[in-house]
Write a protein that binds this DNA or RNA. Structure first.
Lengths: 205, 205
DNA sequence: ATTTGATAATTTTGTTTAAATAGTCAGTTT
DNA sequence: AAACTGACTATTTAAACAAAATTATCAAAT
């Protein structure tokens, strides 16, 4: 037996899925509420029954993706053989995430630095999760005596994430865009793994 | 005795200096050619006798600054005690350069990704100089046996510069600006030195 | 409680106009 | 001839407005 609330959640999910597909293929600004509604054979008004506005719909999709991403990260980092492997897992998972959802982030390219605060919060949440999981990984390795004691693992992970981010950024600077071109993603990934190698070695005895 | 060409060069220099002061205090877009001419008690038309247009004037100033920056770097990297010191010198010199000329780069904030190609060339030139000088430093330390042999020093330096750049970038992301706020420069500098520490250690035996 | 058609409100896009500023040039001064 | 200028033109920027597209609302229907 399915309650009314269940039904509502199912419909919400259906809308999220349809919206995700539209955003993924056409980007935020070239997706209209009419089209999303059309895909589901619903009236546009109903979308507003389930979501306050278009940006909130986009954000809801993004939140879902972020949740899946973090879940994925948690699963992979549950066990690992050494620190490098743990960090490499993060780099890989992020890479796959970006590749898969590349066009979804069209919103970022268009809206650039004026992203709504909520989106920055989601990004911050992702980063916080990465920070927690990776610094936990450092602690584990530290306790095993594989690396020398680290006074502040969070600071180290934060720095590493910044550094990895730099590899992404310099791949786009002096281009007209802020978000990397799809063709550069592989190159970025390779450089990141190299950086990781050196950085990890720098943490060793 | 001063030739006509000397005189022309002197006047060119005077214009560059006046333009630099205006750009430094008011930024590119809030500086008019009339004002620069006024500062020198010259007609605006004369500026166009010496420089083809406003952007070329700005670029000429920038080129001069870049030359001084690179010269500075060469002097400092002529001798050093260890690799960390050499890299730290680069970070420090760049830091001081940005702090000193902070407002001059207003053009970057405004124009963002649509900077004229020539400016990207100057930036590339600076980066090339950094690359050459720092990879030479690596070679020196390698020959002294202070670090383990490096197959491709340029690649390593390139990566490090990207990573250091990431520290700058993350200090501005989710802010409305692309160029860091002046208040963040010290924080960026500190984080960079920390990153440098780890990175260098990663290159050691 | 869920859904919609019709309608209102807002955002985006394009156009016009005026003001500010960049850029030119014929002619003057050194 | 090289250095320079006043007066002019051309371009860019900003503001104001209108039309079109799209978002968002709501009273009524299921």
């Amino acid at each position: 037996m399915s309650s009314a609330v269940d039904q509502q959640d199912i419909k919400r999910e259906k809308i999220l899925e349809a919206a995700y597909q539209r955003f993924l293929h056409y980007g935020y600004s070239k997706t209209t509420m009419n089209e999303i509604a059309g895909d589901l054979s619903l009236s546009k008004a109903l979308l507003y029954y389930y979501f306050p506005d278009k940006s909130q719909l986009y954000i809801a999709v993004m939140r879902k993706l972020a949740g899946e991403y973090i879940q994925n990260l948690e699963n992979e980092l549950r066990q690992f053989d050494n620190l490098k492997e743990a960090f490499a897992a993060q780099v890989d998972i992020q890479h796959n995430f970006i590749v898969k959802n590349y066009n979804f982030f069209d919103f970022f390219r268009v809206n650039e630095q004026n992203l709504p605060d909520t989106i920055w919060e989601i990004i911050a949440e992702i980063r916080r999760a990465e920070l927690v999981l990776l610094s936990a990984a450092i602690r584990v390795e530290e306790n095993k005596g594989h690396i020398k004691p680290v006074e502040n693992p969070e600071q180290i992970v934060d720095l590493l994430i910044d550094a990895l981010h730099g590899v992404r950024v310099s791949a786009v600077s002096h281009k007209k865009v802020m978000f990397p071109q799809k063709e550069h993603l592989e190159e970025i990934h390779t450089k990141r793994l190299l950086l990781l190698n050196i950085f990890i070695k720098g943490l060793m005895y």
